[in-house]
Design a protein around this nucleic acid. Sequence first.
DNA 1: CCTTGACTTCGAGTGCGCTCGAACAGCTAG
DNA 2: CTAGCTGTTCGAGCGCACTCGAAGTCAAGG
Lengths: 148, 148
Amino acid sequence: MKIAELARRTGFSKHALRYYERIGLLPRVTRDGARHRDYDPSIVAWLGFLRRLKTTGMPVREMRRYAALRSGGPETIAARRAMLEAHRCRVHTDIAELQACLVILDTKIAGYAGDSQGMTDHDVSNDRDGDPIRAGLAKPRGDRRARG
Amino acid sequence: MKIAELARRTGFSKHALRYYERIGLLPRVTRDGARHRDYDPSIVAWLGFLRRLKTTGMPVREMRRYAALRSGGPETIAARRAMLEAHRCRVHTDIAELQACLVILDTKIAGYAGDSQGMTDHDVSNDRDGDPIRAGLAKPRGDRRARG
DNA sequence: CCTTGACTTCGAGTGCGCTCGAACAGCTAG
DNA sequence: CTAGCTGTTCGAGCGCACTCGAAGTCAAGG
């Protein structure tokens, strides 16, 4: 499979695919006669998995570590599992945090009066902003970014 | 309230607080005799809310838009609510996506044999990687990043 | 008077994860 | 032969969200 096809099938750009190879996320790619990359179809599944890791916020350096372990053969299985378990735990935490924020968001939206008919001056309580339940702030632990 | 105290109470760094002010996330700050920032306590709630938005992946430029609307008075309430509703919708999507990934992750981890006693060679099925259920890939829609 | 320490402004630097473009190579069709 | 397409390498550049450090100001304490 050529790079354009792989890009199409995985949703990664050709540039990103070469970049991933450079940094060691993808294994040694075979080349055809013209020294063009000729991917094994199994790479699609691996990239699919990488996308899951990425979606769940795993930093690239950690994916690299995982990829390195993977290419290290069966003796790295325990380490790989440990990584995934740790990651799963973080994802759980992230989801919980997101859900907590959703509640706040809902409250805030509800505070902006009921529907499009209202919106009179006496309803400006939301200009106070902040968390109507408790202004919980705490430390910066986990953040989330990017949409595109 | 001085900047150090605000930083302590919100978990943002002093540098970040000045940065937020520069880019318009924080309203006009009053100064004391020494031209030092002297924050109104209400800023704490606002920063708390900003942190929620940040945690839920709202980009800074969008927060700026929200902040600008906020300083535009009651006539912007409808627009603000619309922004929050759109954002809430994206957060819902993100959570769903995360949860879907979590299922995959669980399956994958389960594939790495039961417990620490096993781990023999015949269990290397996970070297195939990818999604054991279906190698769903799709386009890049929403990503998540950063951890502290 | 001098030090200490918290503050100020400013612009430059950082880390991440790509993204882009230039310059070039090789295959295929017309 | 030439055009057009896809691919190649390389290094530079970008957008984001800060982060840092230098150089200076000010008030209080010893």
